[in-house]
Design a protein around this nucleic acid. Structure first.
Lengths: 200, 200
DNA sequence: TAATCTACCAAACACTTGTTAGGGAAGGAG
DNA sequence: CTCCTTCCCTAACAAGTGTTTGGTAGATTA
């Protein structure tokens, strides 16, 4: 696509990872050839191996960089001691912000994490999934106990629906569009919290 | 995995397509080798070409068979002349029934339809997507006009969220589990229609 | 100026991919 | 018994895969 000229070695590496992430997100990891990444970055396939050990290393670096930043954001939210409803609101908003910043990485994670986590190198994906599930489930259960959420809903199902809807948004969300991440989060929260039918 | 012995030629073909769909759904279409499908079906790679023209033909047949049946169900719902809320309820229930019956096909569609629809052979995927969007958007807009749904929500955003949540369920739903498709549809509709916070 | 380092290219490597060609065992039809 | 169809196997093909090796233009350092 467009050649990338970085001033620094670190910048160059980051730029290459960014284009790799875009191609991975668009075509899928396995369907993406190393030559295609090189084409989009403006160099030849072999030259990528000056910067990275392997195609797998690029994927690893993309995913763990994203997950580190994601979990940092989640950590501060969970440590803030908010009520259940406010915690859910903050988590959802954080998630849409991450989609805004790491769109391709989110798409890759959603698409490949399931079968990648079987591989030892990507075992941390399974850990993340568990920490994730715990954070959401605890918050939802606390909300039910404190009468902030309805008691007649299956909490696990609600968790799955909410989780999926938030992350799958990465497949259609494009940064710089009409809706800001915060606006999307607000609309989504309004739908899930209040429902789409009018409250008399 | 397990060898499949069909009595009829048509049965055999269907059984082979079923195993192919499972592998496609689990690993992704491009990442799936024809030898892997053959292994799981209990024959050799070349032998698959007695039944099918190509790997692409298998994918085509899987997707169009699923979409045909899906649209048959949607058609009767849309022709029934129900109110907006009842139409949404029926569409969602229909969708979860399709996930129950065509789980792998749904997963494949969700994962690959975007970049497949650029290919001429799979142009019908783009058409389906449009018909889909029209059906949902019209129903939602009619609901807003008839005061069955809230007017302060962005209908397009609601559509995307609802669509994604319903279909992505194919990635975790397993037939024969504790929840029937109808039960899952009921819980999901309750969440989206009424919201997860208590109505006083 | 000479030596070194950075970032890349050109060309090949071993391997996997989807697909094809030819043949053969099993069984029903004439 | 012979013919024919069905269904599969063996073996190979050409193209594409991730990766390695050796070399080199240009800037940086000594």
């Amino acid at each position: 696509m467009n050649a990338i000229t970085g001033n620094d070695g670190v910048e160059r590496r980051a730029a290459l990872l960014a284009t790799a992430a875009e191609v991975f997100a668009a075509r899928g990891y396995n369907a993406t050839t190393v030559r295609r990444i090189a084409d989009d970055a403006g160099l030849l396939a072999g030259s990528l191996y000056y910067h990275f050990d392997s195609k797998e290393s690029m994927l690893d670096e993309i995913l763990s960089a994203f997950l580190d930043e994601l979990w940092a954001g989640y950590g501060t939210v969970l440590a803030a001691g908010l009520g259940p409803r406010e915690t859910i609101e903050a988590l959802v908003t954080q998630s849409f912000r991450q989609i805004d910043r790491h769109g391709p990485a989110v798409a890759i994670y959603q698409r490949e994490s399931r079968h990648l986590s079987a591989q030892p190198r990507f075992a941390y994906l399974a850990d993340t999934r568990l920490k994730f599930e715990n954070a959401w489930l605890r918050t939802l259960e606390r909300g039910v106990a404190e009468r902030a959420f309805r008691a007649d809903l299956d909490v696990r199902l609600v968790y799955r629906f909410v989780r999926d809807t938030v992350w799958v948004a990465a497949s259609w969300y494009r940064p710089g569009g009409v809706h800001s991440p915060e606006e999307i989060a607000r609309q989504y929260l309004s739908m899930v919290l209040e429902g789409i039918t009018p409250r008399t």
